[in-house]
């Protein structure tokens, strides 16, 4: 480096440590991706490029089934979470602090604070009773559970967007003869949309990634992609699982990139 001056913010050993951390973070993931393209079965050596594991995974009915189920749950749960989180965000921001506001805030963020295993156990017990009472065994339980723990993930970016929104824009709309509904429809909602999309994406990824709660809530034959993958570990991790992981990883990167572009502050 040309800059040889005394840098106040430089601390000895910090940069090498950071570099090691980045390598350590990515090396295992990249290995996994690399070996999902490996022709040989062993992880120990790379024996040529192949897509056969992706093909095999896709040909596996269990995988297809679980993928479809994961997507259905994630789409429905994220949509529900986004809608209720938007309403809650509108209710809890930008008005004079009212009685119970902190309570609402704590309840909404509760899934972030309680260990997953505890929520999972609680839902297992609760839904077991309901299953006995109603006889219903469907996907509703998983969707309800996922929608609930997705709420804070949808809520936070929407709330952030609302708080960053200039309140005078709504005053301006009212000043220009817009009724409260017109103000919401023509000013608030279009400006809120990027936040809602961001919230939906975070909720979607969260739902898609969930293992523990799904494991406890699902009935027999309701495997999602992650619980299916976890089940495979008992029978030695197959390269097929790597292929699925690679696809999920790709999806995460795409969604995150979109998320960043959406929430990026304009310079």
């Amino acid at each position: 480096m040309a800059d040889r001056g005394f840098s106040v913010s430089r601390l000895p050993g910090f940069t090498p440590t950071a570099m090691l951390v980045f390598v350590a973070l990515y090396l295992p993931i990249l290995m996994l991706v690399a070996f999902s393209f490996n022709a040989g079965k062993s992880v120990a050596s790379f024996e040529g490029f192949t897509l056969q594991w992706f093909v095999k995974a896709w040909a596996n009915d269990h995988v297809k089934d679980a993928t479809l189920r994961s997507l259905v749950i994630a789409v429905v749960a994220a949509s529900v979470a986004t809608v209720v989180a938007t309403a809650a965000a509108l209710g809890t921001t930008r008005r004079k602090a009212f009685k119970g506001q902190t309570f609402i805030y704590v309840v909404i963020n509760q899934p972030l604070m309680v260990p997953e295993i505890v929520t999972a156990v609680a839902l297992l017990i609760f839904f077991a009773q309901i299953k006995v009472l109603t006889g219903y065994q469907g996907l509703g339980y998983l969707v309800t559970a996922h929608a609930a723990f997705c709420i804070p993930f949808a809520y936070l970016p929407i709330r952030a967007r609302l708080e960053g929104m200039d309140l005078t824009l709504e005053s301006a709309a009212a000043d220009l003869y817009a009724s409260p509904w017109q103000t919401f429809r023509f000013v608030t909602l279009p400006l809120l949309l990027p936040g809602m999309i961001a919230g939906f994406m975070l909720a979607f990824v969260t739902s898609l990634d969930d293992v523990v709660i799904t494991l406890f809530v699902k009935s027999a034959g309701q495997d999602t992609l992650p619980t299916y993958m976890l089940g495979q570990i008992r029978r030695q991790i197959t390269t097929e699982v790597y292929a699925i992981s690679t696809v999920l990883l790709g999806l995460t990167v795409v969604l995150l990139t979109a998320f960043f572009l959406l929430t990026r502050k304009k310079d």
């Binding site: 004079k96 899934p111 609680a122």
Partner: peptide
């Protein structure tokens, strides 16, 4: 002020109900 408070609660209700069934209520049963 009253209207604003009412609106705040009303808008938060769907989320609270969903969380009551899908997260918090069951904790009490535990």
């Amino acid at each position: 002020v009253a209207a604003s408070t009412r609106a705040g609660w009303l808008l938060s209700t769907p989320a609270l109900v969903l969380l009551a069934f899908g997260a918090i209520g069951p904790l009490l049963i535990v």
